[in-house]
Design a protein around this nucleic acid. Structure first.
Lengths: 221, 221
DNA sequence: TAGATTGTTAATCGATTAACAATC
DNA sequence: TAGATTGTTAATCGATTAACAATC
């Protein structure tokens, strides 16, 4: 069997590859809906303005097999990418903090196809408690521990102000949460068996600022 | 003068460094408010669970000078980071799409200290037009071109559904926008002198899924 | 002084890019 | 067949890490 070594060493996959694969998938899904059957790395690369070599390398990690000259069968390629990214592992999550960002995430239909389902939201505002947002009920934050442990929820999405991020993290961890998607603009401390993914707008804005700065310098030349 | 070579070659700064610098800054600001005067790379690294060597390397890019054994003067270090990240270059932006994500971004007070000011929002919903969100007025999307070109706005923040992202991108570009911060879950095509920063939740979610997957595998051992 | 920390150069590691044989 | 594309190995490039002299 081909690609055995790669498949056995998934920990060696570059994060950049993992980030690009959903982008390929998005484009492939679109092609699929247009009735396309086969696709080559060159096509994908041209569409996304990436290099064909990089696309092929990324795709290689998924273990899919293509045919020289023809490319990859679209269905097969999508299936391999989704399998590789654990799309079909159902993950239930709770969302902490039903502010505007929380609302936006609750309303984002894209998560479900990624295997992520937000089953409940929590907030401390009476105005929000017991209301529904996109068919998801908002509960009092007091019920956090009980529901998380009873439903064995593994993922917490943190969309609260920086000032209470750590306290709520501690409560989630104590209740058994194993992964936190942190949108609060602050570092949170967790035990080392808990996974944290930090979404940092400040970092992104810094990158954007630098890009603009570079562009301005190019224009001046 | 020290660090001349580095300062003259800012284009060589790794994106990872640019992403970490605002994180350091956030911590340093906190220390400053506590009355601390000096700080070493080791301290920063310990706090953020990074390596001291990496912190020093990142800080080196800003051109700040420290003192062996003592470290860096906090004020000086913050100033160098902010200067390096072009924090004090005032950038005016418009936000397109006053949905929940748009609301969340309009309400985020953190942007201003990064030199970014959202001066207006645009939407096509009559319910939202002429309302104010966090002191920012929402205008009809029909007024986009006129206002952007009249006010010479350079940055557009795109928080619209995927289906209309490209059309609005084209309108912004035609009106003179030079940088787009794209929160729509789709690739947008722009002329090569326009900067795009794509915020991709799908990619982040993929990284989180893989981390969880790895963690589960570790637990099984 | 002694020792911690900076500044700077070198080594390592890993991701990206290139090269090329295999093949449809 | 010819040529485009895959699969795989090698080379390059750049970021991270290490090493060590300088210095407060």
């Amino acid at each position: 069997m081909k690609n055995q070594v790669v498949l056995d060493n998934r920990r060696d996959v570059p994060e950049a590859t993992i980030r690009r694969l959903p982008v390929y998938r998005h484009y492939l899904k679109q092609l699929e809906s247009e009735g396309v059957v086969c696709v080559s790395c060159t096509q994908i690369a041209n569409w996304l303005s990436f290099s064909p070599i990089q696309v092929r390398k990324d795709i290689e990690f998924t273990g899919v097999e293509g045919k020289p000259k023809i490319g990859y069968e679209l269905k097969d390629l999508i299936a391999h990418i989704e399998n590789f990214l654990c799309f079909h592992t159902k993950n239930e999550a709770v969302l902490i903090g039903a502010g505007h960002l929380g609302y936006a995430l609750l309303g984002y239909h894209g998560f479900k196809e990624f295997g992520l389902e937000i089953v409940a939201a929590f907030d401390n505002s009476q105005d929000k408690i017991d209301k529904f947002i996109n068919f998801k009920k908002v509960f009092s934050i007091d019920k956090l521990e009980e529901m998380v442990s009873r439903m064995k929820i593994q993922i917490g999405i943190l969309t609260v102000p920086a000032s209470c991020a750590q306290a709520l993290t501690d409560r989630m961890v104590a209740a058994g949460i194993k992964a936190i998607w942190n949108f609060a603009p602050v570092k949170i401390n967790v035990p080392k068996d808990v996974v944290v993914q930090h979404e940092n707008l400040a970092s992104s804005l810094a990158v954007l600022s630098k890009k603009i700065d570079e562009q301005i310098k190019r224009d001046l030349k």
